[in-house]
Design a protein around this nucleic acid. Sequence first.
DNA 1: ATAATTTTTAGAGTTAACTCTAAGTCAAGA
DNA 2: TCTTGACTTAGAGTTAACTCTAAAAATTAT
Lengths: 142, 142
Amino acid sequence: MGYSIGQVAKKTGLTAHTLRYYEKEGLLPFVKKSGSGLRVFSDSDLDWLVLIECLKGTGMSLKDIKQYIDWYMEGDSTLNQRLEMFKRQKLKLEEQMSQLQKHMEKINYKIAYYTEIVAHGSEGVFERNPELAAERKRVYGK
Amino acid sequence: MGYSIGQVAKKTGLTAHTLRYYEKEGLLPFVKKSGSGLRVFSDSDLDWLVLIECLKGTGMSLKDIKQYIDWYMEGDSTLNQRLEMFKRQKLKLEEQMSQLQKHMEKINYKIAYYTEIVAHGSEGVFERNPELAAERKRVYGK
DNA sequence: ATAATTTTTAGAGTTAACTCTAAGTCAAGA
DNA sequence: TCTTGACTTAGAGTTAACTCTAAAAATTAT
């Protein structure tokens, strides 16, 4: 019923160094210490780490994640701020996903293009594969 | 038919500083200079910048982007390496997109949770909205 | 021609997020 | 008890990707 920093490192894939750094930055104000000063992580602390990794994975800075955690520690008076933060993050995430979709199209075009050239040489690529020329226009415009 | 660094900055949203930095890092070996030393960007240089932004947007480092550009400058002997690089990047991108989808689920859960609490208080959230408890299990596990 | 704006360079400074070091403390196994 | 390995802290160092400065040169506008 309590994990050492090393066990948490293994579970999460973060290093012990990183976990201490997160704590120093104020991201883990709920992690307890044993009498002799060792960190003792609970299961709910692991849930927090999952959320932190989620927010980090959507491009939120540690500073903004700390803001959310500070609001959480402050109690019910910040419920609205927290809700609004998640809503903003959802919009950002949707924007990101559609951006990635566009990037994917460009990369798919490049793969088609290079595949064609590797297979048949670069001369007359678009004559041989007119759809590629059309795709280029669609993906890169002009 | 050539753009100054300031015009390119406006078109791309990058700063002139950043464009010079990219050049210094070897990302723009094809950009020409005027007789008096001013950079002159062509339309195809803009296409390159679009591709660079695409690769950067999918998390590729400038170092790896430079590798691709170096291969390009090297000519047809590197066609295969370039194709393989795009294939790897496509896999990375697919992984990223599915990761973002998972993050989206967590954020949606949080929005549902906070919306419920903001509307009706925190007591008996899950009794009032049992689907939320089920969703929590699905999203956070356990 | 003059003034204002833009661009040039080399190089220094910044920021976020780690990442590592050293010197010591704690805990578990033989 | 001894040893080995994990943990502690404060603080220094690293990396990527910018971001800015200063002084001079080029270009554009009046």
